[in-house]
Design a protein around this nucleic acid. Structure first.
Length: 567
RNA sequence: UGCCCCUUAGCUCAACUGGCAGAGCGUCUGACUCUGGAUCAGAAGGUUCCUGGUUCGACCCCAGGAGGGGCAACCA
């Protein structure tokens, strides 16, 4: 505190190693232009939390350094891509709160890429290989043994050029020829053993139609697309580290001056879920979830429907940081971020998931009292309240009553007292059961002196939520939980896959819940805290004005559950 | 039996580039409470993967080793 040189104002903001490098670029003027990044999804699936990390990084850097960030679709594989994914991706990026500078498609670069392919042939740096896939693989060697040159490696420039042009013209069938970079079949980096650049695919492309029958591969298209767009730093995940050699080789030999440089960072892994498009696609296709936007999915669309706010996702991305080592994040870290975001934002309401009827025997028949219920707790800097009707017959949650309670159970039990939130202290006088012995009603008395906010200094240990029976609205409440029952669903014994550890209780539906009437005037898609239960949103797809459906976004931290676990 | 990357608290990251290893989350304890939430206070938790070396001084530099991960698609 006494050292003025360390005052908060000149404390350097905490930076990850990538921002460190970008700051250096800016300081040294390395690229001679403002930092330029891009988010390069392939339109073959929906975006998920892992992509959100990359989106926040790429767009965040552009924003912080006064640079630009493009959205570029890496659409070089006609077999798997679709315009519906393009649309979903654009919607998700916007929803996360980012605006791209340029919207580009690798498929728009096919012409330029082809020109570069010819130029590489002319320089003797690429050749047409006519081995089949199997032969190419065999002759590439293995990680521990060098590959050997194939029989077509030393074709003349003229022959290569002729073959390449005829490939483009559609003279050959799929798989008969490929264009390969001519580098070194014995290169210690497998990626550099004459990587395939272009393959023949007589397939319809969702954007280019049938204009092309040859398509570039990732290595050929990606770095060159970056270079064409004037990207400075090309951010990608760790598994592309080895690809950096071919990235650099290509931008150099294509003649780009001041080309982009690739930097790799660790992809996100989150406990109790999977973050791979391939696996998420299986969950959708095999019916384990109800679609890409199922609220249990870690997709952006799923999180949006679940009710998570984009602010929370951005905060999460900041929290986990960016590093060069594998990162598996605890679910608690994500959940804390979601709760923390909602806590300050959303109004509180009362909703009873499993109604148990309570009759207040000393409450005047037919009398309704309107209570004033504040919508925010004292420590949330928001104001507002709604009227809450109270009457002789109420519903409370079934699990707030125990006939034979353990110690420390501060809710209702025979002879015990509890406060009704915003209302009065009640005492359980009688338990009514049906013939099967099920508790079907509680007969209680209330203490008229103990109205909430009144002068009574009577204290009880517990406060419970409730809804007046005559004013209650039936609704459906869907409680979502983790999709998998183990932290790492990918870590399975031989022959078992991630679908064997799906959590059977990832969705629990309460079809006969009741909620206070005040929510009826809110638009569908409104978020709430159901007091003592969790945060919820009215489901945009399935709610109707007659029947609201609520998704649980996240539970509250549950001290009682912890108490139970301790025994 | 190759090349590359990584290793600091349970988790995610710091440590001003060689100067007393810290923060957030989580955990535990306590206080308070008309949400068993939130909030507040406190605590525990470390051989900085190991072994050598350089140095007055090493998480940081050097050498060797261990462990984890990536690479042998005409996927990205």
């Amino acid at each position: 505190m006494t050292d003025i040189s360390h005052s908060p104002t000149d404390a350097a903001p905490r930076r990850d190693f990538i921002r460190e490098l970008v700051a250096e670029d800016v300081a040294t003027g390395r690229f001679g232009r403002a930092p330029a990044t891009r988010f390069p999804p392939e339109p073959n699936g929906f975006l998920h939390l892992g992509h959100a990390k990359s989106i926040c990084l790429n767009f965040g850097i552009a924003r912080e350094f006064g640079g630009t960030c493009n959205l570029r679709f890496d659409d070089t594989n006609p077999a798997t891509e679709d315009v519906k994914y393009v649309e979903a991706i654009k919607r998700d990026v916007q929803w996360l709160g980012f605006t791209w500078d340029g919207e580009y498609y690798a498929s728009d670069y096919f012409e330029q890429l082809y020109e570069i392919a010819e130029s590489l042939v002319l320089k003797g740096l690429a050749y047409v290989d006519s081995q089949n896939e199997e032969e190419i693989r065999t002759n590439r060697g293995t990680v521990t043994s060098p590959g050997v040159p194939g029989p077509y490696r030393d074709r003349s420039v003229e022959e290569n050029l002729d073959l390449l042009r005829r490939m483009k013209a559609g003279e050959f069938a799929d798989g008969t020829h490929v264009l390969r970079a001519k580098i070194d079949l014995a290169h210690p980096n497998m990626i550099m053993r004459d990587p395939v650049l272009v393959r023949i695919r007589h397939a319809h492309h969702y954007r280019r139609g049938d204009a092309w029958c040859i398509y570039p591969l990732y290595d050929f298209a990606h770095g060159l697309s970056d270079a064409i767009e004037g990207i400075t730093r090309s951010l990608c995940t760790l598994e592309f580290k080895d690809n950096r050699d071919i990235y650099d080789w290509l931008v150099q030999h294509a003649g780009f001056t001041s080309p982009p440089t690739q930097i790799e960072f660790a992809r996100l892994e989150l406990d109790y879920t999977v973050l791979s498009k391939r696996k998420l696609l299986r969950l959708v296709n095999e019916g384990y979830v109800r679609g890409w936007d199922d609220p249990r999915m870690p997709t952006i669309a799923g999180l949006r429907r679940r009710g998570v706010r984009p602010e929370a996702i951005r905060t999460f991305a900041d929290t986990i940081g960016v590093a060069r080592k594998d990162a598996r994040i605890e679910l608690a870290t994500f959940e804390h971020t979601v709760r923390d975001d909602l806590n300050m934002e959303v109004p509180r309401v009362l909703c009873v998931l499993e109604p148990l009827k309570v009759t207040l025997t000393n409450w005047p028949e037919g009398h309704v009292e309107m209570l004033d219920a504040s919508s925010y707790p004292h420590d949330v800097p928001k104001t507002g309240s709604r009227p809450m009707p109270m009457s002789r017959e109420l519903f409370i949650d079934r699990n707030d009553f125990m006939e034979d309670p353990p110690k420390k159970f501060h809710r209702l039990s025979p002879g015990a007292e509890v406060r009704l939130r915003f209302g009065y202290i009640i005492k359980c006088e009688e338990v009514v059961k049906d013939d099967a012995g099920n508790v079907i009603e509680l007969r209680c008395t209330y203490d008229a002196e103990t109205k909430s906010g009144g002068s009574s200094d009577r204290k009880v240990k517990g406060t419970i939520h409730w809804v007046s029976a005559a004013h209650a609205h039936r609704c459906e409440v869907r409680l979502y939980d983790r999709l998998f029952s183990v932290p790492d669903p990918d870590d399975r014994p031989e022959g078992e896959d991630f679908t064997t550890v799906l959590n059977p209780d990832s969705l629990v539906t309460h079809a006969d819940a009741v909620i206070e009437p005040s929510v009826l005037t809110d638009p569908i898609g409104s978020r709430y805290q159901f007091e003592r239960t969790g945060y919820f949103i009215s489901d945009v797809e399935d709610s109707t004005p007659q029947r609201l459906v609520f998704n649980r976004i996240i539970s509250l931290r549950d001290g009682w559950a912890k108490e139970l676990k301790k025994g």
